[in-house]
Every structure is written in C-alpha cells, then in structure tokens.
C-alpha cells in the first residue's frame, strides 16, 4: 500500500516536472505584476493590479482573475399561493470560484474583443455542481451569476488592456485590472492568455495574494478568534458612546428639562 502510493507520488512528480518544463519552454507573457500582494487596510475601496508583458504582434491579450472554488448555500425565491414571491427551496452550488473577472483589450488595434467562451463563464458552467429541487439548474446558475455580478465579483471589463508600439515580432502590453471593494482574502490566479483567431497560443499563470492588514486584520482576528470578548467589547463601547452623547447633550443644555 505504502509502496504503491510512493510509486504514484513519483509518477505524479515526474508528470508535474514535465508539465512545468513545457510551460517554461513557451514564452512567458508576463514581465511584472504590481502589486503581487494586495493589502486591505481601513481605507481600502477596491484596487488596481497592473500587469505588464509582451505578446506576439498579431495576437491579443486577455486576462482573467480567478479565486478559489467554494460552496454556496442559497435560497430560491418562488411563488407561494400563486402571487407571493418568497424564499422557497434550498439551492446548493459547489465548485464555482468566489471571484471570476475577465479583462479584455481596448477595441483599437485588436482583432479579439470577445472572450473565447471556453475561457469565460462557460468554464464555470461546465464545472459547477448544483443541487436543488428545481429541475432548471442552468437557470439557477445564471441567477447565481447575477448575485455575484451585483457584488462586482463576477464580470467582464473591456478596455482594460493597452498595447504599445510593436517591436519586431512582439508588442508590449499594459493591463490595469480593477478589483472590487468586496474582494475576498486569499490567493488568486492571474491567467494571461495570448489569443489569435479565437484560439489560445500561449498562457501564463501567476498568482496574487490578498490579505487584511492594520485595523481590519486586528478586528477580524478578534471577531473570529475571540467572539465573546469581541461581542462584549462592542456592547460596552456602544453603551459608552450612547451614554457619552447623553452627557454631552445634557451639559450643553445646562441640565434644564
């Protein structure tokens, strides 16, 4: 048993090595990603990550930012008694990313303006697992997309990538990837594709890390690790604030009532 799994591990490692060798052989599209670590501080209100690199002069660049896959428990709204809309059935959606943003080039000087379907939302549709009483699972997934889009976590942004003047066989590109204020923490893939005639020529995968720092990090830590203390403190501060305003108002009116 141990021998077998060891053997498997060696085989897998070999395959991985081979795969990475293939990827290294292909041209790396990305020169730099700035910043590679996105920090969420108290003043955070969404941010931009810039990606620069070079691509074949006759190809287009398309980028997607993909978060880790998660499970979602949802309620489906349906009609009760034929007229009233309310939460009816439970819906369980798994194997969908928590964030999925697509960035396309500026229309000028690019042949490709639409994201190839297999790289876009279609890839989520194929991977998603949906459990619900409602037989219309496709429809439910589209509703889920709407929920995500409303929070700015799924979506397509065109005109996010600009090209510089071609330099022989290649041209430089600059992408500014807007990330929403509701950005979750964790690791994200940045998939950069070079596309010609709707087909992927090369692909480079990089990662960015999103984490809270400063006050938000401190509050999250307290709230999730020491819930009771956090709750009690919140209540005490609220009472103090209410009491303090009360005193303030009393003294400003000279105590007359």
């Amino acid at each position: 048993m141990i021998k077998k799994s060891l053997f498997m591990a060696i085989v897998l490692a070999g395959l991985a090595w081979q795969a990475s060798g293939v990827q290294a052989a292909a041209t790396d599209l990305v020169e730099a990603i700035r910043p590679e670590t996105v920090t969420i501080d108290a003043a955070f209100n969404g941010t931009q990550v810039s990606v620069t690199g070079n691509v074949a002069a006759d190809a287009d660049v398309m980028i997607r930012v993909v978060g880790k896959t998660e499970e979602y428990k949802l309620k489906q709204k349906g009609r009760a008694l034929g007229v009233l809309w309310m939460n009816m059935g439970s819906v369980h959606i798994a194997k969908v990313p928590n964030l999925f943003l697509l960035y396309g080039p500026d229309g000028a000087g690019s042949a490709q303006t639409e994201f190839p379907p297999q790289l876009g939302m279609e890839s989520i549709r194929q991977g998603a697992e949906i459990v619900a009483q409602d037989p219309d699972k496709k429809g439910l997934l589209e509703e889920f997309f709407k929920l995500k889009q409303k929070a700015g976590l799924y979506g397509t942004m065109n005109k996010a990538i600009q090209y510089g003047a071609a330099n022989g066989a290649t041209k430089p590109f600059t992408a500014s990837l807007k990330l929403p204020s509701a950005l979750p923490q964790g690791a994200f893939d940045i998939d950069v594709f070079a596309i010609r005639n709707g087909a992927v020529m090369t692909q480079t995968v990089r990662h960015i890390e999103v984490k809270e720092v400063g006050l938000p990090a401190w509050i999250s830590e307290l709230a999730f690790q020491h819930g009771a203390i956090y709750g009690t403190l919140s209540v005490l501060i609220a009472i103090f604030a209410g009491w303090f305003t009360g005193i303030l108002f009393k003294s400003s009116k000279g105590g007359a009532h």
Binding site: G227, Y230, G231, A238
Partner: peptide, 24 residues
C-alpha cells in the same frame, strides 16, 4: 449582539460605530 458575535461572527463593529455616531 453578544450572541451573534459569539456564535455567528456577524457583528461588524466598525459599521456599528459609524451608525452609532449618527444614531446617538
């Protein structure tokens, strides 16, 4: 508040404080 903070971790103190300043 204490029950929610302890069991569900859903009390956002920063949000509550902002609302508080207005509401008091």
């Amino acid at each position: 508040t204490i029950m929610q903070a302890n069991t569900n971790h859903t009390v956002d103190f920063v949000l509550a404080l902002l609302l508080l300043i207005g509401s008091t």
